[in-house]
Amino acid sequence: MAARAAAFSDPEVAALLAAEFVPVAENCSHLQRQQDAEGDLFRLIAEQGHYGGRFQPTDTRQGMYACRPDGTLLGSCNVHGADRLLPVLRRALEGWREGAGARAGAGDGATDGRYRQEPPPGGLALRVWVRDLPRDPEADARPDDWRRRAFNLDHAWFRADEAAALVPEATAGASVAWPEALARRVARFHLIDNVRGEPPMWRDDEVREAEMRSRVREVRGGRVRLDLEGHAALGGLSRWTDDWTGRPQESARSTEARFDGEAEWDVALRRFARFDLVAVGTRVGGTQYNSRGDDPGPAPIGWAWEIADGSLPGDATPPQGFHGRYFQPA
């Protein structure tokens, strides 16, 4: 995540990637396991790179790779700063120019469907931004580095029938409670403290409360304008094994938050034209990969939902918790 700010926000890096490369961003947790031509291609690239052949402390292959279309490596690294990425890019371009271009890797193009998800047809796809909220300066022990400025992005999906279920009768004052499964999904998969990383989702038995409601403010011009509100509380004991020390870790973690938002439902198109939702609350504790070891809280946190309208390159990215029974009832 730190690479977003430190490397890929750098104007020289951005210009080089746009002008000289075909830039691709993908989830290597999937690529490493995909049983298809794309997975084979990634494994070919990655095993020539900085983590090739490594299995301890983890088998991760994450990082940055420059390669020919056939997978021949031109350079790789796993760094945060533009000052360390730029030399890799320049050397890769030199290597590219010295050699002939290459054909793309061979394969039948079939894809491993376990790792290819598209937003639900006719449904609702949302961006979910998250960041820490301001604290009492006297009690704020965070170092003045990326940890104070960190934010993250996930995505939330509702199928078409689920989105329609959030809309009450089109009469001012009418209201509807969101189906329990949807309220619990929002809590389990989207009240996640992923400001600094990508922790595990909440288990269903860790949901203590999850209630959401839509209320009609007005109906005008073929649109139903809604106020959204709700609250959720989650908590449990998180256990994991530290990748580097191999030692078992545990931490109590909890989150409580209140929701407040506005949305507009297009009656004719049967889809949301606007969906702005804020959740503000308190989070406590750490867990695997959320990098809160130095900042367990309690501390304020907030999430903001908005429609993923296709204007950002990652707007079709699946929710991080997609493989955790996202669409299945509890």
């Binding site: 290597c28 690529l31 994450q62 420059a66 992005l153 992923n194 990508e198 990652g314 929710p319």
Partner: peptide
């Protein structure tokens, strides 16, 4: 050439 940014978790998401 191709530039690939590959992370555990989608770089364009979480």
């Amino acid at each position: 050439p191709v530039f690939l940014w590959a992370m555990n978790g989608n770089p364009l998401g979480c």
